[in-house]
Computed example of a mutant assay.
Amino acid sequence: MTLTDRLGIDLPILQAPMAGVQGSALAAAVSASGALGALPCAMLGPDAMADELALIRQRTDRPLNVNFFCHTPPEPDDEREAQWHTALAPYYAEFGLDIGSVTSGPGRRPFDHEACDALEAFRPQVVSFHFGLPAPELLARVKSWGAIVLSSATTVEEARWLEARGVDAVIAQGLEAGGHRGMFLSDALTTQVGIFALLPQIVAAVEVPVIAAGGIADAHGVTAALTLGASAVQVGTAFLCCPEATTSTLHRQALQSDAARHTALTNLYSGRPARGIVTRLMRELGPIGEAAPAFPLATAAIAPLRAAAEAQGSGDFSPLWAGQNASGCREVPAAEVVKALAKGLSPPR
């Protein structure tokens, strides 16, 4: 049985879960089109997640991927926080803001028993994880209701680790991918490689199906990934300008400008490496800053600067997440993006 058959979808195309720029509307539209839509839950509490899942079920009964982060929340570090505030103080002064009034932000929620309780009521067909896997007892609960489990690997070692712990398929996340790196066995960015170098190595290293992610923006990229052994592809950036996405106007404008050709990995916005369009903050502080607090604590002090700049029509302090190839990012319905990506594939049976 192919992975497409196991997932219950018509096309070997998955929409990447993208916290902060999408909700139920995009997930439902992609799933209804025959691909696999995804709902990111890292920024949702259990009640909000249940509301979004209910909305999706009202719009489509097709399979859905529900995605969670698996990081360990860090202990606050007062010294590092002070260094971070010192680095940001000139920008606060520029906008007339008081850095002493910074409070903790919404952060990112790891998968826990409370989330699992809420999720079990819906029993989604697919559950995926970023930054490894949850505790064994939580993973066992998810698998007990028949869910197919996916997780991201950025290296061969991570792919083998995931396979050994029972994932049904590995998402090979190439260096080109937008948003947060799924790396979890090492913090070394030198371990990160492009998808067409990573993909065949992971395919050769594991027995489970492999899903290719990163830099895939059109049908040619889909075909190339499948030729190199992928069972499916995962695409994110190409959906960011769809009307069903919640991407801000500033972010959409950047994605469709020449600026989108210059992206970099940065930890300034969350505390963990993530790929986005290069902004003033990244240029002036350097994209990787040692003072940035551990994920997701860096978000809190950035939020007031982002709000102040965006109020003036500027994305200088906004996380403009994007992959290295934004050429497929168009203002068309999600179903049209799916259709374009699937061009040339064999018709679904």
Score class of each variant (00 low, 15 high):
L36E: 07
A322H: 03
G178S: 08
E284Y: 11
D61R: 07
G313E: 00
M183A: 15
A274L: 08
L53E: 00
D77L: 08
A309T: 09
V156W: 09
A177W: 05
F95V: 06
V142P: 00
A259D: 13
G214S: 05
L139K: 12
L88P: 04
L133P: 13
A204G: 11
R306L: 09
Q15E: 11
P136F: 10
T191I: 00
L64H: 12
V167H: 12
T4W: 01
G323E: 02
L97T: 02
G45P: 06
G229T: 05
A38I: 03
D316W: 05
S318E: 09
L268C: 05
A307D: 14
G289K: 07
P136A: 10
S314V: 00
L36G: 07
L226Q: 06
R59S: 12
A303M: 13
A48M: 10
G179S: 06
T246L: 09
M282G: 12
A224R: 13
G215P: 05
A140Q: 05
E81S: 13
G37R: 14
P124S: 08
P17S: 03
G315I: 06
L285E: 10
G236N: 08
T4N: 06
M49P: 15
I288G: 07
D77G: 07
R108D: 12
A89K: 04
Q234W: 05
T247V: 03
I9Q: 00
F68L: 01
A300S: 12
F111Q: 04
P124I: 07
A292P: 00
A205V: 11
G229K: 01
V126H: 06
R181N: 10
P124G: 10
